[in-house]
Design a binder for these strands. Structure first.
Length: 106
DNA sequence: TTTATGACGAAAG
DNA sequence: GCTTTCGCCATAA
């Protein structure tokens, strides 16, 4: 029996570098519509060196969830080519990941 | 067992 | 665009 946390992490691992997804989006893709908080909670208990690209998960409005590692997350995303506006938000229209449309899948 | 909390989100005013 | 309200659910106390 695969737990919800496992499915959440599986989805996050699918997100290609240079693109982002929102918490709610991950929840839906994991089959847990409406449980966006669960996504954040699963990532919070995760180790930063777990290999999961947690930095690619952002809020529904494109901003970074305020916490200790927020600055580190922004730095990582910028190094992947993602840009932020003056209010610290990402243009989701431009960098949002849509399943099946990642650069490596023709 | 009941309450509170948290890397959230959408709707309503 | 802002704040409030409510829904969600695993953990902790």
């Amino acid at each position: 029996m695969i737990g919800a946390t496992e499915r959440i992490l599986a989805v996050v691992r699918e997100v290609p570098a240079g693109q982002v997804v929102t918490y709610g989006q991950v929840a839906r893709l994991a089959g847990l519509p409406g449980s966006a908080r669960q996504v954040g909670y699963a990532l919070a208990r995760l180790g930063m060196e777990s290999g999961v690209p947690w930095q690619r998960v952002v809020r529904a409005d494109g901003s970074i969830a305020p916490r200790r590692a927020a600055a580190d997350q922004r730095r990582r995303l910028e190094s992947e080519g993602i840009g932020f506006d003056a209010e610290g938000r990402i243009d989701l229209e431009r960098w949002r990941w849509h399943p099946g449309t990642d650069p490596l899948s023709p």
